[in-house]
Protein backbone atom coordinates (compact mmCIF):
# COMPACT_ATOMS: atom_id res chain seq x y z
CA UNK A 1 0.00 0.00 0.00
CA UNK A 2 2.69 2.45 0.97
CA UNK A 3 4.66 1.55 -2.09
CA UNK A 4 1.59 1.76 -4.27
CA UNK A 5 0.68 5.22 -3.03
CA UNK A 6 4.27 6.11 -3.77
CA UNK A 7 4.39 4.73 -7.30
CA UNK A 8 0.86 4.63 -8.65
CA UNK A 9 -0.99 7.88 -9.30
CA UNK A 10 -4.48 6.28 -9.57
CA UNK A 11 -4.16 4.56 -6.20
CA UNK A 12 -2.83 7.78 -4.74
CA UNK A 13 -5.84 9.70 -6.07
CA UNK A 14 -8.29 7.15 -4.72
CA UNK A 15 -6.72 7.21 -1.25
CA UNK A 16 -6.52 11.01 -1.12
CA UNK A 17 -10.16 11.38 -2.08
CA UNK A 18 -11.26 8.68 0.36
CA UNK A 19 -9.52 10.45 3.24
CA UNK A 20 -11.13 13.71 2.22
CA UNK A 21 -14.65 12.40 1.80
CA UNK A 22 -14.83 10.55 5.10
CA UNK A 23 -14.26 13.75 7.04
CA UNK A 24 -15.97 15.95 4.51
CA UNK A 25 -19.26 14.09 4.47
CA UNK A 26 -19.37 13.48 8.21
CA UNK A 27 -18.89 17.15 9.02
CA UNK A 28 -21.05 18.75 6.33
CA UNK A 29 -23.81 16.36 5.30
CA UNK A 30 -24.44 14.50 8.55
CA UNK A 31 -24.84 17.41 11.04
CA UNK A 32 -27.99 18.97 9.50
CA UNK A 33 -29.55 15.49 9.34
CA UNK A 34 -28.79 14.78 12.98
CA UNK A 35 -29.65 18.25 14.28
CA UNK A 36 -33.09 19.11 12.96
CA UNK A 37 -33.04 22.45 14.78
CA UNK A 38 -30.71 23.82 12.11
CA UNK A 39 -33.62 23.99 9.69
CA UNK A 40 -36.62 24.46 12.03
CA UNK A 41 -37.52 28.15 12.54
CA UNK A 42 -37.68 29.29 16.15
CA UNK A 43 -41.25 29.14 17.48
CA UNK A 44 -42.15 29.02 21.15
CA UNK A 45 -45.35 30.26 22.74
CA UNK A 46 -44.91 28.46 26.06
CA UNK A 47 -43.13 30.66 28.67
CA UNK A 48 -42.36 27.52 30.69
CA UNK A 49 -39.99 26.42 27.92
CA UNK A 50 -37.99 29.64 28.03
CA UNK A 51 -38.04 32.76 25.90
CA UNK A 52 -41.10 33.03 23.69
CA UNK A 53 -41.27 34.31 20.14
CA UNK A 54 -41.46 33.30 16.52
CA UNK A 55 -38.98 33.72 13.70
CA UNK A 56 -40.53 35.59 10.76
CA UNK A 57 -39.30 35.38 7.18
CA UNK A 58 -37.79 38.60 5.83
CA UNK A 59 -40.05 41.04 4.00
CA UNK A 60 -39.00 42.37 0.62
CA UNK A 61 -37.79 45.64 2.13
CA UNK A 62 -35.81 43.87 4.84
CA UNK A 63 -34.18 41.63 2.25
CA UNK A 64 -33.22 44.69 0.25
CA UNK A 65 -31.62 46.17 3.35
CA UNK A 66 -29.87 42.92 3.98
CA UNK A 67 -28.39 43.03 0.49
CA UNK A 68 -27.04 46.51 1.18
CA UNK A 69 -25.53 45.17 4.41
CA UNK A 70 -23.85 42.41 2.41
CA UNK A 71 -22.72 44.75 -0.38
CA UNK A 72 -21.07 47.22 1.97
CA UNK A 73 -19.29 44.44 3.84
CA UNK A 74 -20.77 45.38 7.24
CA UNK A 75 -20.34 41.73 8.22
CA UNK A 76 -16.56 41.96 8.05
CA UNK A 77 -16.54 43.98 11.28
CA UNK A 78 -19.88 43.15 12.94
CA UNK A 79 -20.55 39.59 14.00
CA UNK A 80 -24.11 38.34 14.45
CA UNK A 81 -23.86 35.79 17.22
CA UNK A 82 -24.35 36.07 20.94
CA UNK A 83 -22.06 33.26 21.99
CA UNK A 84 -22.39 31.03 25.02
CA UNK A 85 -20.17 33.41 26.97
CA UNK A 86 -21.40 35.44 29.91
CA UNK A 87 -19.79 38.58 28.54
CA UNK A 88 -21.57 38.15 25.20
CA UNK A 89 -24.99 37.89 26.81
CA UNK A 90 -24.28 41.04 28.80
CA UNK A 91 -22.86 42.99 25.86
CA UNK A 92 -25.81 42.00 23.67
CA UNK A 93 -28.18 42.86 26.49
CA UNK A 94 -30.04 46.10 26.95
CA UNK A 95 -30.60 48.22 30.04
CA UNK A 96 -29.73 45.53 32.50
CA UNK A 97 -31.51 42.67 30.75
CA UNK A 98 -29.13 39.95 29.52
CA UNK A 99 -29.68 38.74 25.97
CA UNK A 100 -30.36 35.05 25.33
CA UNK A 101 -27.62 33.21 23.44
CA UNK A 102 -28.07 32.78 19.70
CA UNK A 103 -29.42 29.42 18.60
CA UNK A 104 -29.41 27.84 15.12
CA UNK A 105 -33.21 28.12 14.80
CA UNK A 106 -32.99 31.92 14.74
CA UNK A 107 -31.05 31.97 11.46
CA UNK A 108 -33.07 29.62 9.30
CA UNK A 109 -33.99 32.29 6.73
CA UNK A 110 -30.45 33.72 6.48
CA UNK A 111 -28.68 33.40 3.15
CA UNK A 112 -25.90 34.40 2.97
CA UNK A 113 -25.32 33.75 6.64
CA UNK A 114 -23.71 36.70 8.41
CA UNK A 115 -22.26 35.23 11.59
CA UNK A 116 -18.90 36.83 10.91
CA UNK A 117 -15.41 36.00 12.12
CA UNK A 118 -14.11 39.36 13.26
CA UNK A 119 -15.57 41.78 15.77
CA UNK A 120 -14.02 45.16 15.01
CA UNK A 121 -17.33 46.82 15.86
CA UNK A 122 -19.88 45.53 18.39
CA UNK A 123 -21.90 42.40 17.79
CA UNK A 124 -25.27 43.06 16.12
CA UNK A 125 -27.11 39.81 16.84
CA UNK A 126 -29.52 41.55 19.26
CA UNK A 127 -29.38 45.11 17.94
CA UNK A 128 -32.92 45.14 16.56
CA UNK A 129 -35.15 47.65 18.30
CA UNK A 130 -32.38 49.28 20.27
CA UNK A 131 -31.83 52.43 18.18
CA UNK A 132 -34.38 54.38 16.20
CA UNK A 133 -34.27 55.61 12.64
CA UNK A 134 -32.96 59.04 13.55
CA UNK A 135 -30.04 57.54 15.45
CA UNK A 136 -29.15 55.30 12.51
CA UNK A 137 -29.29 58.19 10.05
CA UNK A 138 -26.92 60.30 12.10
CA UNK A 139 -24.69 57.29 12.71
CA UNK A 140 -24.45 56.42 9.02
CA UNK A 141 -23.58 60.03 8.20
CA UNK A 142 -20.74 60.12 10.66
CA UNK A 143 -20.39 57.45 13.35
CA UNK A 144 -18.03 59.63 15.38
CA UNK A 145 -20.76 62.22 15.99
CA UNK A 146 -22.60 59.70 18.15
CA UNK A 147 -19.80 57.42 19.29
CA UNK A 148 -16.53 59.32 19.78
CA UNK A 149 -13.57 57.07 19.10
CA UNK A 150 -15.45 54.85 16.65
CA UNK A 151 -13.48 53.76 13.58
CA UNK A 152 -16.51 52.85 11.48
CA UNK A 153 -16.41 54.49 8.04
CA UNK A 154 -19.11 57.06 7.28
CA UNK A 155 -21.80 55.94 4.83
CA UNK A 156 -23.37 59.18 3.54
CA UNK A 157 -24.56 57.46 0.37
CA UNK A 158 -26.77 55.20 2.45
CA UNK A 159 -28.07 57.97 4.69
CA UNK A 160 -28.87 60.12 1.64
CA UNK A 161 -30.55 57.36 -0.35
CA UNK A 162 -33.94 57.22 1.33
CA UNK A 163 -34.94 53.88 -0.13
CA UNK A 164 -31.72 52.10 0.80
CA UNK A 165 -31.59 53.75 4.19
CA UNK A 166 -35.13 52.71 5.11
CA UNK A 167 -34.39 49.18 3.91
CA UNK A 168 -31.19 48.86 5.95
CA UNK A 169 -32.87 50.17 9.08
CA UNK A 170 -35.80 47.81 8.53
CA UNK A 171 -33.33 44.93 8.32
CA UNK A 172 -31.34 46.01 11.37
CA UNK A 173 -34.52 46.23 13.44
CA UNK A 174 -35.20 42.53 12.80
CA UNK A 175 -31.89 41.37 14.25
CA UNK A 176 -32.39 39.20 17.30
CA UNK A 177 -36.12 39.92 17.48
CA UNK A 178 -37.29 36.35 17.00
CA UNK A 179 -36.90 35.94 20.73
CA UNK A 180 -38.97 38.30 22.89
CA UNK A 181 -36.32 38.85 25.46
CA UNK A 182 -36.88 42.42 26.70
CA UNK A 183 -40.59 43.17 26.80
CA UNK A 184 -40.46 46.42 28.73
CA UNK A 185 -37.36 48.23 27.60
CA UNK A 186 -37.87 48.80 23.89
CA UNK A 187 -37.60 52.33 22.59
CA UNK A 188 -40.65 51.46 20.53
CA UNK A 189 -42.89 51.24 23.55
Amino acid sequence: MLRKADYSAPIFVAAALFMFFVGGLLTTVVPPIVDKSWARPFDNSDPAKGVTGKLQPYTEQQLKGRNVYVREGCWYCHTQQTRTLLADTKRSGWRGVDAPVSTPDEFVYDSPHLFGTKRTGPDLSRVGGKYDEQWHRAHFRNPRDLVPGSIMPPYPWIADNEEEFQAVVAYLQTLGRAKNWRPDNDYER
Binding site: Q81, R83, F115
Partner: peptide, 19 residues
Protein backbone atom coordinates in the same frame (compact mmCIF):
# COMPACT_ATOMS: atom_id res chain seq x y z
CA UNK B 1 -2.86 15.95 6.78
CA UNK B 2 -5.21 14.41 4.23
CA UNK B 3 -7.06 12.70 7.02
CA UNK B 4 -7.27 15.35 9.70
CA UNK B 5 -7.73 18.72 8.04
CA UNK B 6 -11.19 18.44 6.59
CA UNK B 7 -12.87 17.90 9.96
CA UNK B 8 -12.03 21.17 11.57
CA UNK B 9 -14.32 23.73 9.88
CA UNK B 10 -16.68 24.11 12.84
CA UNK B 11 -13.92 25.46 15.08
CA UNK B 12 -14.68 28.84 13.49
CA UNK B 13 -17.96 28.83 15.41
CA UNK B 14 -16.82 27.72 18.85
CA UNK B 15 -19.27 28.98 21.50
CA UNK B 16 -21.47 30.07 18.61
CA UNK B 17 -24.90 28.90 17.52
CA UNK B 18 -23.81 25.51 16.21
CA UNK B 19 -24.19 22.09 17.81
Amino acid sequence: LAFVYVWTGAHHMLHGPIS
